[in-house]
């Protein structure tokens, strides 16, 4: 059993033919597409209908929706201040999308949307693209001051290329962090799952040893649930920090 097989994007429900061509590329309805649709539809339904207007004493579901809302709102407020709240819908969507994708991926047999570099890189480019657009809209060419730290001129020769490179690598670091975390966790689970199967199939006393990787899987599962939340949080907070730089450049208020 190949532990990498779970990351294969393949046509789902026997829809082996492309749905249509987009710019010459065939678009399939894949297992990943199914999971993404599930993620966004269920998230949207939950966040919409868990909350009832006028219900001042929340139910558990409403409490969850409100807590996630205020969690993201406070995150933006503390990282960027009042004027960052304009971008709340975007950061909230990003956080919910990544969080729900990570959690749906924890269901055995499902597919982890965020374990695909294409998805995480697209999201990271969206974030950095937004940062660039916001930065130039707010400061014009003054946005380029972001690459010029307060330092003597002879240090700037060194510092400006470093700043430029660190800015340009942001989409990569942001996307690889999420992608690698998800990939590593799920690979580990699959590897230990493989151990359980092969030990169990060995027969005799050796079969009893299968309990060890089994227990390990339970522990890793718990760790992965934490990682699933943590990576969504990291993705969202880094988005806020980048937005803050676009809004306020280097001035530390």
């Amino acid at each position: 059993m190949n532990p990498m097989e779970q990351f294969t994007v393949k046509p789902a429900f026997g829809l082996d033919h492309p749905l249509f061509l987009l710019g010459g590329h065939p678009i399939y309805f894949t297992n990943q597409a199914f999971l993404m649709i599930l993620v966004v539809v269920l998230s949207a339904l939950f966040l919409t209908f868990a909350v009832k207007p006028g219900r001042l004493v929340p139910t558990r579901g409403q409490s969850m929706a409100e807590v996630s809302y205020e969690f993201v709102a406070n995150m933006i407020h503390s990282a960027t201040g009042e004027d960052g709240l304009k971008y709340f819908p975007f950061v909230f969507t990003l956080f919910i999308f990544v969080l729900a994708s990570n959690f749906f991926g924890m269901i055995p047999g499902s597919f982890t949307v965020t374990s695909q570099i294409a998805v995480t890189l697209a999201l990271a480019c969206l974030v950095v693209g937004l940062v660039i657009v916001v930065g130039f809209m707010k400061h014009g060419l003054g946005f380029l001051k972001l690459f010029v730290p307060h330092a003597p001129w002879y240090l700037l020769i060194l510092l400006i290329p470093i700043e430029v490179i660190s800015f340009l690598t942001r989409p990569i670091s942001l996307s690889v962090r999420l992608f690698a975390n998800m990939l590593a966790g799920h690979t580990m689970l699959a590897v230990f799952g493989g151990f359980v199967v092969s030990l169990g199939a060995a027969g005799g006393l050796i079969s009893g040893l299968a309990i060890a990787p089994m227990l390990l899987i339970v522990a890793i599962m718990l760790l992965e649930l934490l990682v699933a939340f943590l990576q969504a949080y990291v993705f969202a907070i880094l988005t806020c920090i980048y937005l803050n730089e676009a809004l306020h450049l280097h001035d530390h208020h």
Partner: peptide, 18 residues
């Protein structure tokens, strides 16, 4: 291409809904 397409569709849907 399939990944980008479905990501764009679903992310846009979630964005508008939220």
């Amino acid at each position: 291409p399939s990944q980008f397409f479905w990501l764009a569709v679903t992310f846009a849907f979630l964005f508008v809904m939220l």
